[in-house]
Design a protein around this nucleic acid. Structure first.
Length: 420
RNA sequence: GGAGGGGUGGCAGAGCGGUUGAAUGCGCUUGUCUUGAAAACAAGUAUGUCGGUAACGGCAUCGCAGGUUCGAAUCCUGUCCCCUCCGCCA
Protein backbone atom coordinates (compact mmCIF):
# COMPACT_ATOMS: atom_id res chain seq x y z
CA UNK A 1 0.00 0.00 0.00
CA UNK A 2 1.14 3.51 -0.74
CA UNK A 3 1.42 6.07 2.01
CA UNK A 4 -1.75 8.11 2.31
CA UNK A 5 0.24 10.83 4.02
CA UNK A 6 2.72 11.03 1.15
CA UNK A 7 0.01 10.97 -1.49
CA UNK A 8 -1.71 13.90 0.18
CA UNK A 9 1.55 15.79 0.47
CA UNK A 10 2.44 15.39 -3.20
CA UNK A 11 -0.46 13.99 -5.20
CA UNK A 12 0.93 14.81 -8.63
CA UNK A 13 4.13 12.92 -8.00
CA UNK A 14 2.11 9.79 -7.27
CA UNK A 15 -0.18 10.28 -10.20
CA UNK A 16 2.77 10.63 -12.54
CA UNK A 17 4.51 7.57 -11.12
CA UNK A 18 1.41 5.43 -11.47
CA UNK A 19 0.68 6.66 -14.97
CA UNK A 20 4.05 5.15 -15.92
CA UNK A 21 2.61 1.76 -15.07
CA UNK A 22 -0.59 2.43 -16.93
CA UNK A 23 -2.63 3.15 -13.84
CA UNK A 24 -5.08 6.00 -13.38
CA UNK A 25 -5.62 6.23 -9.63
CA UNK A 26 -8.54 8.30 -8.29
CA UNK A 27 -6.31 10.84 -6.61
CA UNK A 28 -9.02 13.47 -6.23
CA UNK A 29 -11.28 11.06 -4.41
CA UNK A 30 -8.43 10.07 -2.12
CA UNK A 31 -7.75 13.70 -1.22
CA UNK A 32 -11.44 14.28 -0.61
CA UNK A 33 -11.74 11.25 1.65
CA UNK A 34 -8.62 12.16 3.56
CA UNK A 35 -9.78 15.65 4.40
CA UNK A 36 -13.17 14.26 5.41
CA UNK A 37 -11.34 11.71 7.53
CA UNK A 38 -9.35 14.35 9.37
CA UNK A 39 -12.44 16.44 9.95
CA UNK A 40 -14.36 13.49 11.41
CA UNK A 41 -11.49 12.55 13.70
CA UNK A 42 -11.36 16.08 15.03
CA UNK A 43 -15.11 16.17 15.64
CA UNK A 44 -15.10 12.87 17.48
CA UNK A 45 -12.03 13.79 19.52
CA UNK A 46 -13.62 17.00 20.79
CA UNK A 47 -16.69 15.10 21.99
CA UNK A 48 -14.62 12.35 23.52
CA UNK A 49 -12.40 14.83 25.33
CA UNK A 50 -15.49 16.43 26.84
CA UNK A 51 -16.97 13.11 27.86
CA UNK A 52 -13.70 12.04 29.43
CA UNK A 53 -13.56 15.27 31.40
CA UNK A 54 -17.07 14.96 32.79
CA UNK A 55 -16.72 11.28 33.65
CA UNK A 56 -13.46 11.87 35.36
CA UNK A 57 -14.89 14.74 37.43
CA UNK A 58 -17.71 12.46 38.59
CA UNK A 59 -15.23 9.82 39.58
CA UNK A 60 -12.92 12.25 41.32
CA UNK A 61 -15.77 13.70 43.34
CA UNK A 62 -17.10 10.25 44.19
CA UNK A 63 -20.69 11.15 43.39
CA UNK A 64 -23.54 10.08 41.18
CA UNK A 65 -23.96 11.88 37.86
CA UNK A 66 -26.79 14.44 37.76
CA UNK A 67 -29.75 13.79 35.45
CA UNK A 68 -28.58 16.68 33.27
CA UNK A 69 -25.15 15.18 32.96
CA UNK A 70 -26.59 11.82 32.03
CA UNK A 71 -28.75 13.36 29.33
CA UNK A 72 -25.92 15.44 27.97
CA UNK A 73 -23.44 12.57 27.96
CA UNK A 74 -25.93 10.27 26.26
CA UNK A 75 -26.33 12.84 23.52
CA UNK A 76 -22.57 13.19 23.28
CA UNK A 77 -22.20 9.43 23.07
CA UNK A 78 -24.78 9.19 20.31
CA UNK A 79 -23.05 11.94 18.40
CA UNK A 80 -19.71 10.16 18.72
CA UNK A 81 -21.25 6.95 17.45
CA UNK A 82 -22.66 8.75 14.45
CA UNK A 83 -19.32 10.31 13.60
CA UNK A 84 -17.51 7.02 14.12
CA UNK A 85 -19.89 5.25 11.77
CA UNK A 86 -19.21 7.82 9.10
CA UNK A 87 -15.50 7.65 9.77
CA UNK A 88 -15.39 3.90 9.39
CA UNK A 89 -17.24 4.21 6.09
CA UNK A 90 -14.64 6.72 4.94
CA UNK A 91 -11.78 4.48 6.05
CA UNK A 92 -13.35 1.51 4.33
CA UNK A 93 -13.58 3.39 1.07
CA UNK A 94 -10.00 4.60 1.42
CA UNK A 95 -8.85 1.01 1.91
CA UNK A 96 -10.91 -0.16 -1.02
CA UNK A 97 -9.19 2.44 -3.17
CA UNK A 98 -5.65 2.17 -1.82
CA UNK A 99 -5.27 -1.60 -1.48
CA UNK A 100 -5.57 -2.32 -5.22
CA UNK A 101 -3.13 0.46 -6.18
CA UNK A 102 0.29 -0.96 -7.09
CA UNK A 103 3.66 0.27 -5.88
CA UNK A 104 5.29 3.18 -7.66
CA UNK A 105 8.29 2.40 -9.89
CA UNK A 106 11.71 3.77 -9.00
CA UNK A 107 13.13 6.53 -11.19
CA UNK A 108 15.53 4.31 -13.12
CA UNK A 109 12.88 1.79 -14.13
CA UNK A 110 12.52 2.02 -17.93
CA UNK A 111 9.36 3.46 -19.45
CA UNK A 112 6.96 1.15 -21.23
CA UNK A 113 3.69 -0.58 -20.61
CA UNK A 114 4.45 -4.19 -21.52
CA UNK A 115 7.23 -6.73 -21.85
CA UNK A 116 8.35 -5.40 -25.21
CA UNK A 117 9.91 -2.46 -23.34
CA UNK A 118 11.97 -4.58 -20.99
CA UNK A 119 15.69 -4.05 -21.33
CA UNK A 120 18.26 -6.84 -21.58
CA UNK A 121 21.11 -5.54 -19.47
CA UNK A 122 23.48 -8.47 -19.84
CA UNK A 123 23.74 -11.90 -21.37
CA UNK A 124 26.11 -14.64 -20.31
CA UNK A 125 28.78 -16.07 -22.59
CA UNK A 126 27.85 -18.91 -24.88
CA UNK A 127 25.68 -19.68 -27.87
CA UNK A 128 21.92 -20.01 -27.82
CA UNK A 129 21.77 -23.19 -29.84
CA UNK A 130 18.60 -25.08 -30.74
CA UNK A 131 18.21 -28.81 -31.02
CA UNK A 132 14.44 -29.05 -31.16
CA UNK A 133 14.17 -31.73 -28.52
CA UNK A 134 11.83 -30.20 -25.98
CA UNK A 135 11.81 -31.47 -22.43
CA UNK A 136 8.33 -32.96 -22.75
CA UNK A 137 9.69 -35.33 -25.39
CA UNK A 138 13.14 -35.92 -23.96
CA UNK A 139 12.08 -36.42 -20.34
CA UNK A 140 9.05 -38.49 -21.19
CA UNK A 141 11.23 -40.76 -23.30
CA UNK A 142 13.70 -41.08 -20.44
CA UNK A 143 10.86 -42.08 -18.12
CA UNK A 144 11.52 -39.27 -15.66
CA UNK A 145 8.48 -37.12 -16.48
CA UNK A 146 4.90 -38.35 -16.67
CA UNK A 147 2.48 -35.70 -17.88
CA UNK A 148 -0.35 -38.15 -18.35
CA UNK A 149 -0.12 -39.28 -14.76
CA UNK A 150 -0.19 -35.67 -13.62
CA UNK A 151 -3.31 -35.05 -15.67
CA UNK A 152 -4.92 -38.22 -14.43
CA UNK A 153 -4.27 -37.40 -10.79
CA UNK A 154 -4.97 -33.69 -10.75
CA UNK A 155 -5.74 -32.42 -14.24
CA UNK A 156 -4.09 -30.19 -16.81
CA UNK A 157 -0.92 -28.35 -15.82
CA UNK A 158 0.01 -30.90 -13.19
CA UNK A 159 2.90 -33.30 -13.65
CA UNK A 160 4.73 -36.19 -12.08
CA UNK A 161 8.49 -36.52 -11.83
CA UNK A 162 9.82 -40.04 -11.50
CA UNK A 163 13.06 -41.77 -10.60
CA UNK A 164 16.09 -39.72 -11.56
CA UNK A 165 13.81 -36.87 -12.61
CA UNK A 166 12.46 -36.53 -9.08
CA UNK A 167 15.94 -36.97 -7.67
CA UNK A 168 17.30 -34.29 -9.97
CA UNK A 169 14.70 -31.80 -8.78
CA UNK A 170 15.43 -32.65 -5.15
CA UNK A 171 19.17 -32.27 -5.81
CA UNK A 172 18.67 -28.88 -7.46
CA UNK A 173 16.59 -27.61 -4.58
CA UNK A 174 18.96 -28.90 -1.92
CA UNK A 175 22.01 -27.50 -3.70
CA UNK A 176 20.47 -24.07 -4.19
CA UNK A 177 19.36 -23.98 -0.59
CA UNK A 178 22.86 -24.90 0.56
CA UNK A 179 24.46 -22.16 -1.52
CA UNK A 180 22.01 -19.58 -0.20
CA UNK A 181 22.50 -20.55 3.41
CA UNK A 182 26.17 -21.51 3.50
CA UNK A 183 27.59 -18.98 1.07
CA UNK A 184 25.12 -16.10 0.86
CA UNK A 185 24.21 -15.94 4.54
CA UNK A 186 20.48 -16.60 4.35
CA UNK A 187 18.58 -18.20 7.21
CA UNK A 188 16.56 -21.19 6.09
CA UNK A 189 12.84 -21.06 6.83
CA UNK A 190 10.23 -23.77 6.43
CA UNK A 191 6.96 -21.82 6.62
CA UNK A 192 3.27 -22.72 6.45
CA UNK A 193 1.97 -23.08 2.91
CA UNK A 194 -1.55 -22.15 3.92
CA UNK A 195 -1.92 -18.60 5.16
CA UNK A 196 -4.58 -16.26 6.46
CA UNK A 197 -6.19 -13.68 4.27
CA UNK A 198 -4.45 -10.91 6.20
CA UNK A 199 -1.07 -12.41 5.40
CA UNK A 200 -2.02 -12.62 1.74
CA UNK A 201 -3.14 -9.00 1.84
CA UNK A 202 0.10 -7.98 3.51
CA UNK A 203 2.17 -9.26 0.62
CA UNK A 204 -0.06 -7.61 -1.97
CA UNK A 205 -1.67 -10.75 -3.40
CA UNK A 206 -5.06 -9.85 -1.98
CA UNK A 207 -7.46 -8.34 -2.70
CA UNK A 208 -6.52 -7.84 -6.32
CA UNK A 209 -5.31 -11.28 -7.36
CA UNK A 210 -7.68 -13.60 -5.58
CA UNK A 211 -8.63 -15.28 -8.85
CA UNK A 212 -5.16 -16.73 -9.19
CA UNK A 213 -5.04 -18.17 -5.68
CA UNK A 214 -6.24 -21.48 -4.34
CA UNK A 215 -8.28 -21.23 -1.18
CA UNK A 216 -9.87 -23.48 1.40
CA UNK A 217 -13.09 -21.68 2.16
CA UNK A 218 -13.98 -23.85 5.13
CA UNK A 219 -11.02 -22.69 7.20
CA UNK A 220 -10.51 -19.49 5.20
CA UNK A 221 -6.89 -20.25 4.37
CA UNK A 222 -5.09 -19.57 1.12
CA UNK A 223 -2.36 -21.62 -0.55
CA UNK A 224 0.76 -19.56 -1.09
CA UNK A 225 1.56 -18.67 -4.71
CA UNK A 226 5.17 -18.16 -3.59
CA UNK A 227 7.10 -18.41 -0.33
CA UNK A 228 7.39 -14.63 -0.51
CA UNK A 229 3.92 -14.43 1.03
CA UNK A 230 4.90 -16.40 4.11
CA UNK A 231 8.33 -14.79 4.47
CA UNK A 232 6.74 -11.37 4.20
CA UNK A 233 4.39 -12.31 7.02
CA UNK A 234 7.17 -13.50 9.29
CA UNK A 235 7.33 -10.21 11.22
CA UNK A 236 3.94 -8.68 10.55
CA UNK A 237 2.77 -6.42 13.33
CA UNK A 238 6.21 -6.45 14.92
CA UNK A 239 8.74 -3.76 15.70
CA UNK A 240 12.21 -5.04 14.86
CA UNK A 241 14.83 -3.95 17.36
CA UNK A 242 17.63 -1.58 16.44
CA UNK A 243 20.67 -3.30 14.98
CA UNK A 244 18.85 -6.42 13.77
CA UNK A 245 18.50 -5.48 10.09
CA UNK A 246 19.30 -6.67 7.53
CA UNK A 247 17.52 -10.03 7.84
CA UNK A 248 17.93 -12.55 5.07
CA UNK A 249 15.66 -15.55 4.70
CA UNK A 250 15.46 -18.38 2.22
CA UNK A 251 12.77 -21.00 1.86
CA UNK A 252 12.11 -23.89 -0.46
CA UNK A 253 8.38 -24.38 -0.87
CA UNK A 254 5.82 -25.36 -3.42
CA UNK A 255 3.99 -22.50 -5.11
CA UNK A 256 0.33 -22.84 -6.08
CA UNK A 257 -1.09 -20.77 -8.89
CA UNK A 258 -4.34 -21.09 -10.79
CA UNK A 259 -2.86 -19.42 -13.88
CA UNK A 260 -6.29 -18.39 -15.09
CA UNK A 261 -4.83 -15.22 -16.48
CA UNK A 262 -2.34 -17.15 -18.59
CA UNK A 263 -4.87 -19.68 -19.85
CA UNK A 264 -3.55 -20.12 -23.38
CA UNK A 265 0.17 -19.71 -22.72
CA UNK A 266 2.79 -22.41 -22.37
CA UNK A 267 0.34 -25.25 -22.57
CA UNK A 268 2.88 -27.93 -23.42
CA UNK A 269 5.30 -29.42 -20.96
CA UNK A 270 5.95 -28.06 -17.51
CA UNK A 271 6.92 -24.47 -18.15
CA UNK A 272 3.74 -23.18 -16.60
CA UNK A 273 2.03 -25.38 -14.01
CA UNK A 274 -0.33 -25.07 -11.06
CA UNK A 275 2.13 -26.39 -8.49
CA UNK A 276 5.89 -25.99 -8.59
CA UNK A 277 8.84 -25.90 -6.25
CA UNK A 278 10.86 -22.75 -5.76
CA UNK A 279 13.72 -21.56 -3.61
CA UNK A 280 12.91 -18.03 -2.55
CA UNK A 281 15.24 -15.37 -1.16
CA UNK A 282 13.76 -12.65 1.00
CA UNK A 283 15.37 -9.70 2.74
CA UNK A 284 14.30 -7.05 5.20
CA UNK A 285 16.64 -4.08 4.95
CA UNK A 286 17.01 -0.46 5.96
CA UNK A 287 15.53 1.80 3.28
CA UNK A 288 18.76 3.37 2.11
CA UNK A 289 20.36 -0.02 1.46
CA UNK A 290 17.61 -1.61 -0.61
CA UNK A 291 18.90 -0.55 -4.02
CA UNK A 292 22.24 -2.15 -3.29
CA UNK A 293 20.57 -5.24 -1.81
CA UNK A 294 18.62 -5.75 -5.02
CA UNK A 295 21.83 -5.87 -7.05
CA UNK A 296 23.33 -8.36 -4.60
CA UNK A 297 20.36 -10.65 -4.93
CA UNK A 298 20.54 -10.56 -8.71
CA UNK A 299 24.19 -11.55 -8.45
CA UNK A 300 23.31 -14.38 -6.08
CA UNK A 301 20.75 -15.78 -8.51
CA UNK A 302 23.17 -15.39 -11.42
CA UNK A 303 25.80 -17.36 -9.54
CA UNK A 304 23.47 -20.33 -9.49
CA UNK A 305 22.88 -20.15 -13.23
CA UNK A 306 26.59 -19.88 -13.86
CA UNK A 307 27.49 -22.88 -11.75
CA UNK A 308 24.88 -24.93 -13.54
CA UNK A 309 26.56 -23.95 -16.79
CA UNK A 310 23.42 -22.39 -18.20
CA UNK A 311 23.18 -19.55 -20.66
CA UNK A 312 21.18 -16.77 -19.15
CA UNK A 313 20.34 -13.13 -19.49
CA UNK A 314 19.26 -10.44 -17.07
CA UNK A 315 16.36 -8.15 -17.89
CA UNK A 316 15.37 -4.92 -16.27
CA UNK A 317 11.60 -4.78 -16.40
CA UNK A 318 9.82 -1.67 -17.58
CA UNK A 319 7.35 0.25 -15.44
CA UNK A 320 4.33 -1.47 -16.92
CA UNK A 321 5.68 -5.00 -16.51
CA UNK A 322 6.86 -5.05 -12.90
CA UNK A 323 4.69 -6.86 -10.38
CA UNK A 324 2.00 -5.23 -8.31
CA UNK A 325 4.07 -4.85 -5.14
CA UNK A 326 7.35 -4.14 -6.88
CA UNK A 327 9.14 -0.83 -7.33
CA UNK A 328 11.87 -2.32 -9.50
CA UNK A 329 12.37 -5.81 -10.88
CA UNK A 330 15.04 -7.79 -12.66
CA UNK A 331 14.18 -11.05 -14.36
CA UNK A 332 16.69 -13.77 -15.05
CA UNK A 333 15.99 -16.03 -17.99
CA UNK A 334 17.84 -19.18 -19.00
CA UNK A 335 18.09 -20.50 -22.52
CA UNK A 336 16.06 -23.54 -23.37
CA UNK A 337 17.56 -25.17 -26.48
CA UNK A 338 14.69 -27.63 -26.78
CA UNK A 339 11.92 -25.04 -26.66
CA UNK A 340 14.15 -22.46 -28.37
CA UNK A 341 13.19 -19.73 -25.96
CA UNK A 342 14.25 -17.94 -22.82
CA UNK A 343 12.64 -19.26 -19.64
CA UNK A 344 12.11 -16.96 -16.70
CA UNK A 345 13.68 -18.67 -13.68
CA UNK A 346 13.93 -15.74 -11.34
CA UNK A 347 12.20 -12.47 -10.74
CA UNK A 348 13.94 -10.25 -8.22
CA UNK A 349 12.26 -7.18 -6.83
CA UNK A 350 12.48 -4.49 -4.27
CA UNK A 351 9.07 -3.74 -2.84
CA UNK A 352 10.36 -0.74 -0.92
CA UNK A 353 8.02 -0.09 2.04
CA UNK A 354 4.91 -1.18 0.12
CA UNK A 355 4.57 -4.53 1.90
CA UNK A 356 5.74 -3.47 5.34
CA UNK A 357 3.20 -0.66 5.39
CA UNK A 358 0.49 -3.17 4.55
CA UNK A 359 1.40 -5.66 7.20
CA UNK A 360 2.73 -3.43 9.95
CA UNK A 361 6.36 -4.51 10.00
CA UNK A 362 8.47 -1.73 11.49
CA UNK A 363 11.98 -1.33 12.84
CA UNK A 364 13.98 1.04 14.99
CA UNK A 365 16.97 2.65 13.27
CA UNK A 366 18.56 3.31 16.67
CA UNK A 367 17.82 2.34 20.26
CA UNK A 368 15.12 4.69 21.46
CA UNK A 369 14.45 6.13 18.01
CA UNK A 370 10.96 6.18 16.57
CA UNK A 371 9.93 3.42 14.23
CA UNK A 372 10.32 3.30 10.46
CA UNK A 373 9.21 0.92 7.74
CA UNK A 374 11.91 -1.41 6.49
CA UNK A 375 12.14 -2.30 2.82
CA UNK A 376 11.50 -5.83 1.62
CA UNK A 377 13.05 -7.60 -1.33
CA UNK A 378 12.29 -10.97 -2.81
CA UNK A 379 13.64 -13.09 -5.56
CA UNK A 380 13.71 -16.65 -6.76
CA UNK A 381 16.93 -18.43 -6.28
CA UNK A 382 15.79 -20.29 -8.40
CA UNK A 383 12.49 -21.59 -9.71
CA UNK A 384 11.85 -25.23 -10.45
CA UNK A 385 10.86 -26.92 -12.67
CA UNK A 386 12.10 -24.42 -15.24
CA UNK A 387 15.67 -24.86 -14.08
CA UNK A 388 15.07 -28.59 -14.28
CA UNK A 389 13.92 -28.13 -17.88
CA UNK A 390 17.04 -26.17 -18.73
CA UNK A 391 19.32 -28.74 -17.12
CA UNK A 392 17.66 -31.58 -19.02
CA UNK A 393 17.59 -29.83 -22.39
CA UNK A 394 21.14 -28.52 -22.06
CA UNK A 395 22.52 -31.82 -20.89
CA UNK A 396 20.97 -33.81 -23.74
CA UNK A 397 23.52 -35.98 -25.52
CA UNK A 398 23.53 -37.43 -29.04
CA UNK A 399 22.50 -40.82 -27.72
CA UNK A 400 19.46 -39.44 -25.89
CA UNK A 401 21.00 -39.59 -22.44
CA UNK A 402 21.34 -36.50 -20.25
CA UNK A 403 24.45 -35.36 -18.39
CA UNK A 404 23.86 -33.18 -15.39
CA UNK A 405 26.08 -30.38 -14.03
CA UNK A 406 28.96 -31.41 -11.75
CA UNK A 407 27.71 -29.33 -8.82
CA UNK A 408 24.69 -31.60 -8.53
CA UNK A 409 26.54 -34.91 -8.44
CA UNK A 410 27.10 -34.80 -4.66
CA UNK A 411 23.34 -34.52 -4.33
CA UNK A 412 22.35 -37.15 -6.89
CA UNK A 413 25.10 -39.70 -6.66
CA UNK A 414 25.25 -39.96 -10.48
CA UNK A 415 25.95 -37.62 -13.37
CA UNK A 416 23.96 -39.14 -16.19
CA UNK A 417 20.41 -40.15 -16.92
CA UNK A 418 20.70 -43.02 -19.35
CA UNK A 419 18.55 -43.40 -22.42
CA UNK A 420 16.36 -46.47 -22.00
C1' G B 1 -14.12 -33.74 18.58
C1' G B 2 -15.03 -33.16 24.42
C1' A B 3 -13.70 -30.44 29.27
C1' G B 4 -11.16 -26.56 31.53
C1' G B 5 -7.42 -22.25 32.06
C1' G B 6 -5.36 -17.93 29.94
C1' G B 7 -4.10 -13.59 26.54
C1' U B 8 -2.01 -6.42 30.17
C1' G B 9 3.94 -2.12 28.21
C1' G B 10 10.90 -4.93 25.61
C1' C B 11 10.33 -9.04 29.51
C1' A B 12 8.15 -10.72 34.21
C1' G B 13 3.83 -9.51 36.70
C1' A B 14 -0.34 -6.40 39.56
C1' G B 15 -5.00 -4.40 38.63
C1' C B 16 -11.01 -6.93 37.86
C1' G B 17 -16.45 -0.35 36.83
C1' G B 18 -14.14 5.84 38.46
C1' U B 19 -7.22 10.84 38.92
C1' U B 20 -5.10 3.36 35.30
C1' G B 21 -1.54 4.57 29.56
C1' A B 22 -1.80 1.42 33.37
C1' A B 23 1.52 -0.53 40.28
C1' U B 24 6.07 -3.20 41.17
C1' G B 25 10.52 -5.65 39.50
C1' C B 26 13.92 -6.51 35.51
C1' G B 27 15.84 -4.56 31.07
C1' C B 28 17.13 -0.14 28.26
C1' U B 29 18.67 5.39 27.75
C1' U B 30 20.76 9.70 29.98
C1' G B 31 22.93 12.13 34.19
C1' U B 32 25.70 12.25 39.11
C1' C B 33 29.75 9.68 41.31
C1' U B 34 34.48 7.06 39.22
C1' U B 35 41.02 7.30 35.97
C1' G B 36 37.56 3.75 33.47
C1' A B 37 33.99 0.04 34.57
C1' A B 38 30.74 -2.05 38.18
C1' A B 39 27.67 -0.70 42.17
C1' A B 40 24.63 3.16 44.14
C1' C B 41 21.51 7.30 43.33
C1' A B 42 18.38 10.53 40.02
C1' A B 43 15.55 11.25 35.71
C1' G B 44 13.57 9.17 31.47
C1' U B 45 11.83 4.87 28.70
C1' A B 46 4.83 1.97 24.36
C1' U B 47 2.42 2.52 19.58
C1' G B 48 -0.62 5.14 16.47
C1' U B 49 -3.33 9.33 15.19
C1' C B 50 -5.32 14.68 14.95
C1' G B 51 -3.86 19.89 15.60
C1' G B 52 0.75 22.84 15.87
C1' U B 53 6.95 25.52 12.48
C1' A B 54 7.92 23.85 17.30
C1' A B 55 7.29 23.49 22.40
C1' C B 56 3.18 21.08 23.44
C1' G B 57 -1.86 19.53 23.67
C1' G B 58 -6.21 16.29 22.33
C1' C B 59 -7.81 11.35 21.07
C1' A B 60 -7.30 6.02 20.54
C1' U B 61 -5.07 1.41 21.95
C1' C B 62 -4.61 -3.73 28.11
C1' G B 63 -5.27 -10.21 21.56
C1' C B 64 -9.26 -8.55 17.87
C1' A B 65 -14.49 -6.96 16.88
C1' G B 66 -19.05 -5.51 18.89
C1' G B 67 -22.33 -4.40 23.29
C1' U B 68 -23.83 -2.42 28.38
C1' U B 69 -22.64 2.30 31.19
C1' C B 70 -22.28 9.25 32.60
C1' G B 71 -17.57 6.33 32.73
C1' A B 72 -14.66 -0.28 30.85
C1' A B 73 -8.06 -3.16 31.11
C1' U B 74 -12.06 -4.31 34.55
C1' C B 75 -19.13 -6.48 33.08
C1' C B 76 -21.64 -9.08 28.48
C1' U B 77 -21.38 -11.39 23.35
C1' G B 78 -18.63 -13.08 19.26
C1' U B 79 -13.88 -14.21 17.32
C1' C B 80 -8.52 -15.34 16.96
C1' C B 81 -4.40 -17.26 19.47
C1' C B 82 -1.82 -19.94 23.56
C1' C B 83 -1.80 -23.72 27.54
C1' U B 84 -3.67 -28.33 30.35
C1' C B 85 -6.51 -32.99 30.39
C1' C B 86 -9.41 -36.75 27.45
C1' G B 87 -10.31 -38.74 22.51
C1' C B 88 -8.35 -39.21 17.51
C1' C B 89 -4.23 -39.12 14.24
C1' A B 90 0.90 -38.51 10.31
Amino acid sequence: MLSLEQIVRDPEKFRAALVRRGEAPPIERILELDSRRKQLIQNADIDRANRNKVSKAIGDEKRKPTPDEITEMRETGDRIKGVEAELSAVLEELDAILLPIPNTPLEDVPDGLDETSNVVIRTSEGETSEHGNAHWDVATKLGILDLEAGASIAGARFFVLKGKGARLQRALAAWMLDVQTDEHGYTEIDPPLLVRGETMTGSGNLPKFKDNLYRDSESDLWLVPTAEVALNGLHQGQIIDAGVLPMKYVAQTPSFRKEHTSAGRDVRGIKRVHQFEKVEMFRYVEPDTSVEALEEMVAEAETLCQRLGLIYRVLKLCAGDIGFQSAKTYDIEVWSPGCAEWLEVSSISTCTDFQTRRNGTRYRPEVGASTRLPHTLNGSGLALPRIWIAVIENGLQEDGSVIIPDVLVPYTGWNRIEAS
